[in-house]
């Protein structure tokens, strides 16, 4: 075992940290999508991380937020604040003391792994970091599974993401879910994300907007699989859907290996 048990941290909602027992050099943050859970979205990831030695130098955070209630950009601001806090303070403050961490410690690599709506949240948070010239931004890398950064098919998103009772109540108009408007392909949120990212790229200052790896599911019916600005060509995974493409299992280790290889 290379990591602590889940430590429930004050950032976001029900976020858990698995801190390495060694001294860390990397931080890996997982950000779920619409109606995802801090850890539930990622299935076997916590178990694989604790039982293998691939992350011995990495602190891991499974970041949670209330995706059903808040607007995408509000959740992006909250995530940005979390990034500031964890990147600009000693990791021992997260709840487990490692002796070798100096007062001026900073992570060499910050790997952000996002699913679906999480990609919109992460991209906007990094744009916020750029606008405030955060030095750790240059250490950030994004891996995006089934990203919703070019919008989603709302009916399919709800059908695939909400439990049956939620689907019924949302259909009846009982619930207000503002983020659904944000995820329409022509929404202000998506259009601004593209425009702002392209603006930085045009000024040769947009390296941070380019994902390290984008992963699409071949059976995708929820998000629009379109390239985002200067992202690399996506990795296409067969026989996986929007929700299963980011969930490693004993017989499907691709998501795990993709994250390990990006460290």
């Amino acid at each position: 075992m290379s990591h602590t048990p889940p430590i429930f941290i004050r950032h976001g909602k029900n976020s858990s940290a698995f801190l390495t027992l060694d001294n860390p050099t990397n931080l890996v943050i997982f950000v779920h999508g619409f109606n995802g859970k801090a850890t539930g979205t990622w299935d076997e990831f916590p178990n694989l991380i604790r039982n293998n030695n691939d992350f011995t130098n990495s602190d891991i955070i499974f970041y949670g937020y209330d995706s059903l209630k808040g607007q995408a950009n509000n959740n992006a601001v909250k995530f940005y604040r979390t990034l500031i806090s964890v990147c600009e303070s000693n990791p021992n403050n997260l709840g487990f003391k490692r002796d070798g961490l100096t007062a001026n410690f900073s992570y060499q690599r910050i790997l952000i792994v996002a699913h679906s709506l999480g990609a919109v949240i992460v991209r906007r948070a990094l744009l916020n970091a750029k606008s405030e010239n955060k030095p750790w931004l240059q250490n950030c890398r994004m891996i995006l599974f089934a990203p919703a950064h070019r919008g989603a098919r709302i009916q399919n998103l709800v059908a695939e993401s909400l439990p049956t009772v939620g689907k019924i109540l949302a259909g009846l108009g009982f619930l207000t879910i503002p983020v659904l408007d944000d995820l329409r392909p022509n929404s202000q949120t998506i259009q601004n994300l593209i425009t702002d990212s392209q603006g930085h790229l045009n000024q040769n200052a947009g390296q941070f907007t380019i994902a390290h790896e984008v992963v699409w599911a071949n059976n995708e019916i929820v998000v629009h699989n379109d390239q985002f600005c200067n992202d690399p060509v996506a990795t296409l995974i067969d026989n996986k859907s929007h929700t299963s493409v980011c969930k490693p299992k004993a017989t499907f280790l691709d998501p795990y290996n993709i994250v390990v290889n990006a460290l």
């Binding site: 075992m1 048990p5 889940p6 029900n14 858990s16 916590p46 178990n47 604790r50 039982n51």
Partner: peptide
């Protein structure tokens, strides 16, 4: 261990 971790995380959701 994995089951207990899951239990802790589910418990956190319902209590918080």
């Amino acid at each position: 261990t994995a089951l207990f971790d899951r239990f802790l995380m589910l418990n956190q959701i319902v209590k918080n």
